[in-house]
């Protein structure tokens, strides 16, 4: 029975070597299909008798070269998807949010010490305004820091627009339903467009509320109604009584949208129209 190995084909009659060029061998190996029922692991001596290599060292060496080339090819392929960069972009965005909040908090604390009149009243201002006051009012290091934070905030808003634009392109249907930013966050949680497309609606519904979910599964606590999708206005603006229902319906539609995005890659107006109508209908009925 014919067996196909990385270095050549082997059957009762002997073996046919496929050459010793690593690139050609790697190319050939991608096309090999093995039936596991009849598979027999190879003895390296067969490759020697076949004339591919002379020693065990040469065998392992050539095999390593071929496998490394194959792995490099596969890695390059997996980084090719449009969603891969978007993933990093959202994560950077969320990281920026964290950093900006931490820094602003610290800057306010610092400013309060140097300027006792900067009291609670000021701290309830929007962060942007507060930073402006600190930058103007403080001297030296603190003023520099405030300026840096403002610049960082600018970077953050530019990046946010970029994320939205990229999400509209990579996830046209999902973005149309919940907006680019939230769609991108869902993608980031799922780990990629393919995994998001494979998720059931019920999973999408609670993406981002893993703690509540697992504490529920372990027993006792009520289940989470929504995770990341809470950030969408349809969910957080919905009256409390129907919020869970809106989240469920929205998540179900998102699951379909993600599959459309993955397999078709373009917006599907008929689907979007029906889905929007359905979600709106759930939101008002109480």
């Amino acid at each position: 029975m014919l067996q196909r190995y990385w270095f050549g084909d082997v059957d009762e009659g002997g073996c046919r070597a496929a050459g010793t060029d690593p690139a050609a061998l790697a190319e050939r190996a991608t096309a090999l299909r093995t039936g596991m029922d009849s598979f027999v692991p190879i003895d390296w001596e067969v490759a020697r008798d076949c004339g591919v290599v002379r020693t065990r060292e040469e065998y392992v060496d050539l095999l390593r070269t071929v496998c490394t080339a194959l792995a490099r090819k596969k890695i390059a392929l997996s980084y090719q998807g449009r969603d891969v960069e978007l993933l990093q972009m959202v994560r950077m965005l969320d990281e920026l949010d964290n950093v900006i909040n931490l820094l602003s908090e610290r800057a306010a604390e610092w400013y309060q010490v140097t300027n006792p009149s900067f009291s609670r009243k000021y701290r309830s201002l929007p962060a942007k305004k507060m930073l402006g006051i600190i930058r103007k009012g403080a001297r030296g290091g603190l003023s520099d820091v405030a300026e840096e934070i403002e610049r960082l905030a600018g970077t953050r808003s530019r990046l946010m627009r970029e994320v939205s634009a990229r999400a509209d392109e990579v996830l046209p249907n999902t973005s149309a339903l919940i907006g680019g930013l939230v769609a991108a966050r869902l993608l980031s949680r799922a780990g990629g467009l393919e995994s998001l497309a494979r998720m059931p609606g019920s999973t999408i519904q609670v993406l981002g509320s893993e703690r509540a979910l697992f504490s529920h599964l372990r027993g006792g606590t009520p289940p989470p109604k929504h995770g990341i999708i809470f950030q969408h206005r349809r969910v957080h603006n919905a009256p409390k009584g129907v919020r869970g229902r809106v989240a469920r319906v929205l998540a179900a539609k998102l699951a379909i949208a993600a599959r459309l995005d993955y397999y078709r890659g373009e917006a599907v107006p008929e689907f979007l129209r029906d889905a929007q109508a359905r979600i709106d209908e759930v939101g008002v009925a109480a």
Binding site: Y5, W6, G35, M36, C67, A71
Partner: peptide, 14 residues
């Protein structure tokens, strides 16, 4: 070897 351990047919030839 870059392959899925639950699919040995992917790396069996090696």
């Amino acid at each position: 070897i870059m392959a899925d351990a639950s699919r040995p047919e992917e790396y069996a030839p090696f």
